[in-house]
Structure formats: C-alpha cells, structure tokens
Nucleic acid binder design. Structure first.
Length: 423
RNA sequence: AGAGAGGUGGCCGAGUGGUCGAAGGCGCACGCCUGGAAAGUGUGUAUACACCAAAAGUGUAUCGAGGGUUCGAAUCCCUUCCUCUCUGCCA
C-alpha cells in the first residue's frame, strides 16, 4: 500500500510512474486525495466535538462531587446535541476511511526507475546470462516423460488422490526433493538467513499484510470452515511474523529462510505450459526474506541476486536473469529480477526464482517499522525471493542432466541424495 | 469439544464508573556520582490521526478486537479472538 502522505505530495510523479504499469491512475489518485481531505476535515471536526464533550463531562463530575446536582443536570442536557453530532461525524469518518483504504488497496506499487516499459514478458530485459546449454541427443525427453520412464514422479496417482497439479514423488524422486530442500536451506543459512519452520495456513490479516488479499483472493485456497488460507508462498507467514512490529535500527538486516509447500489455485491456466512440473497446485519452495533499512534495500536486492546465482552455478544449470518490465511486474513489487533456467528438452526458459524489493509497500500494510536516529518510527523495506522453487529446478535437472542410461545427479547434491544417478 | 479463570505500556503488575494514557517495579536512554565500573541518584521513556510551513505545542483515539449502556468506561453489558487450568479426544 502506498503512503497517503506521499501521494498527497507527489501525485503527478506517481501518476507518471504508474504509466509504466500501463495504468492511468489519475482519476483514482484524485478520488483518493478528495476522500483524504474529507477524512481529515471530519477528523478535525470530530476531535473538536469530542474535546468539548470531554470538557463537559469533567465539569459534570466535579459538580456532582461538590454537591451541585442541579447545575450538573443543566450541563448534561447540553451534551445531548454534542453526542449526536459526534456519533454522526464518527460514522462519516469511519465510512470515509474504509472507502479510502479500499481505494488504496487498488493501487499497485510504484515501479523503480530502472524498470523498463512494456506490456508483457516479451518486454522483460535480460540483464545477465550464464552457463552452457547442453547438447542433448536427438531423442532427449521432456521431464514428464523422464519422470515416468524412471518412475520418480506419478502425476496420475496424484490425480487419483487429490486432483490435477498434485504430483506424487516416488523413490529417488522423493529423495531428490528432500535433498534439494536440505541443500537450499543449508546454502541460505550459510549466507546468514535464519531458518524458520512455518504454518502452512494463515489468517486473513496476514493475507492483507503481504498483499495477497484483496488482490489475489481467487488464487489462494480458502479453508472456509476456519477462515484460513493455504499459503501460496512462505513469504506470507515469514513477512507477517513482523507485522505490527517496530524493530530496532541495529536489528537490520533481518534475514529469514523457510521451506514450505506452496498452494496455488492457478485459476485460468491451461495448455502445454502447465504440463508436468511446469505449473502445479502444490509445490515445494525455499524462500528467503529480508527486512532492511531503506538506504540499503537495493544493495540487499543485489546481494540476494548474487546468492541465487551462486546456487545455480553450483548446480551447473544454464540460467538468465530478467528485469521485469512494468507490465509484468507483480502488484506489490517495485523491482523484480526473475531467474530462468533453460529447459533443454522443452526448448524454453522456466522461471525458477523471483527476487523483489517491495520498498515500503508491504511494510505500510504490515505496519513494519524501525526507529530512526531521532527515535521516530519509519517504514522498513521488505524483500524476498525464492532460493529456490523445486519443481522447475527438478525439471531443469532431469532434462539437462539426462543421458542415454539415466539421469546424473549434480555433484553438489550427491552428499544429500546418497546416490549419483537415477536409472 | 465441554466447564472455569483471565487478557492492562518493552516486561512484570496495581487499578472494579469521574482530572487514568493509566500507580509501583524491572528494563531502556541520557545526566550526576566514580580513576573506571557496579551500586546509588536525577530526568525521560507508547502508537496512530488531526491542527501547525516545521519544531515546540495542542486536541482526539487506543488497557486483546468490535459494538453497546452512561454526561463520563481499563472498570458495567453483548459479540468475537486469544491464553491458562480441569475434563474429553488425539499424532
């Protein structure tokens, strides 16, 4: 959520910046500013009325104490109209604030100045590329065929037990999943991230805190019986640990990592691109989250990018990094780098990590602050990224490491799997 | 899940209708004391919003959350969430 005070001061700048997202926010921002003016005026009026009322109440109290009930009675009558006025003003204030809040929820974050213009993922800017794309034999298979051939992932069985998009990993496939999770967590903790184990469901307030609600209401599984949501990413529980907190400046950087399954309804997805592991309703991911001083958040973003590069380098997977364009940028993000691994057998790039700086956008919703030099609370910056998402990494490994006789396990994973190949 | 008790500031804890944003203690910050530290001592110590160009200041709200009663609510009533104890169930 954008800060109201900043919208007031920089309206034109905000309108201009939001054009990068192909949004014309002028009308919306003007409505917001009008509502805000109304809210403030009402607030002042209400405060004055209540002040008057409080004053009278104190006088009445004193009069009763001093044994002057008649005079007290007179004053009591004077309060009637004030009470009514304050009730009305209170209602107006309430409604105005709610309306204002709702509109504020509709505005996405302001893109960072480096974000390129563009409408779709075609306009994303490649900023880095590394690794050799392996040359595969002519009869190289996509991962879903490999999974079947070596009986390590059973999609049909998942359909039987739950439904499409809930695969069942078997044997060495399951072990490889566990190995990847352990390896990622070890890399992250070695880089100073504190490991946390998290709830896989969150309440409504947490959904709002990180911005999944109300924007992506239909994308989360909603457990209506208890009004909880299955997490679409560990970002939600991790970041919400700090909701309503005022941390010390010296606490920065706050760095957390956590493994969780992620649940996404993926309403509206279909076709070849959702085949196999490419898009699932439940998948595993190891997330990294940082909370930073605003002065250091972009340095932190670079640091996270380097960290993920290092992991992919160790796995020896060919990858590229994209700076997302305005049209492809997530609702709450100011700047996002997507990591993509090349899936040789599918001949396409697969997104395997997304690293974002949200600046104060999430922090404003979360009320996540720190005290500055003067002891004044200021909004912190939040960042997160995947390090890493499992299914597509697995797809990349299966496809790129396939040989005629099996699948070679990347060297760095062998200590975790206990085997060197899948045959 | 049933019965009971309870949720007060960073923490502990007093407060059961009237100058209560809230005693006292701990913690923390700054100062004094000290060669330095401890002890001692003094002062300060929430957040949001509004008014103000801003600081200072003032006002309003906040005692889990949301309603209500009352001139006036931390205190009374209702709803809801959470915690604890006992019983039940259970990996």
């Amino acid at each position: 959520m954008l800060q109201l005070s900043l919208i007031r001061e920089n309206k034109e700048h905000f309108i201009e910046a939001l054009k990068k997202r192909n949004i014309d926010a002028a009308t919306l921002l003007n409505t917001i500013i009008d509502l805000d003016e109304k809210r403030r005026g009402t607030q002042t009026e209400l405060d004055n009325t209540l002040a008057e009322l409080n004053k009278l109440s104190k006088e009445i109290g004193l009069l009763f104490k001093n044994g002057k009930p008649n005079e007290a009675q007179e004053l009591k009558e004077k309060t009637t109209s004030l009470k009514e006025a304050s009730k009305n003003l209170g209602d107006v204030l309430h409604n105005t604030s709610d309306a204002l809040q709702e509109l504020l929820y509709q505005i996405p974050n302001i893109p960072h100045e480096s974000v390129p213009k563009g409408n779709s993922d075609d306009d994303n800017e490649q900023v880095y590329r590394e690794g050799e794309i392996p040359e595969l034999k002519e009869n190289a298979l996509p991962h879903w065929k490999l999974a079947k051939k070596y009986d390590i992932i059973d999609f049909e069985l998942g359909v039987k037990v739950t439904g499409a998009g809930f695969p069942i990993y078997k044997g060495k496939g399951a072990k490889l999943q566990r190995a990847l999770i352990s390896y990622f967590l070890d890399k992250n903790t070695a880089a100073g991230y504190t490991e946390v184990q998290l709830p896989h469901m969150v309440n409504e307030a947490s959904g709002y805190g990180t911005g999944q609600l109300p924007d992506k209401e239909g994308q989360m599984y909603h457990v209506t019986g208890d009004d909880l949501y299955l997490i679409p990413t560990a970002e939600v529980p991790i970041t919400n640990m700090l909701r309503d907190e005022i941390v010390k400046k010296d606490d920065f950087p706050l760095k957390f990592t956590g493994y969780t399954p992620c649940f996404r309804r993926e309403a509206g997805s279909y076709g070849a691109h959702v085949r196999g592991l490419n898009r699932l309703h439940q998948f595993d991911k190891v997330e990294i989250v940082r909370v930073e001083h605003p002065d250091h958040s972009y340095q932190a973003l670079d640091d996270m990018v380097e960290h993920v590069k290092d992991i992919l380098r160790e796995l020896q997977l060919p990858f590229r990094i994209l700076r997302l364009c305005g049209g492809d940028l997530g609702f709450t993000s100011a700047l996002t780098y997507d990591f993509e691994v090349f899936s040789t057998a599918q001949d396409r790039w697969l997104e395997i990590s997304s690293i974002s700086n949200f600046e104060t956008y999430q922090a404003n919703r979360l009320k996540l602050r720190f005290k500055d030099e003067k002891g004044k609370p200021q909004l912190a910056h939040t960042l997160n990224g995947s390090a890493l998402a499992l299914p597509r990494i697995l797809a990349g490994i299966l496809e790129n490491y396939q040989t005629e006789t099996g699948i070679t396990i990347p060297e760095v994973l062998v200590p975790y799997t206990g085997f060197e190949s899948i045959n």
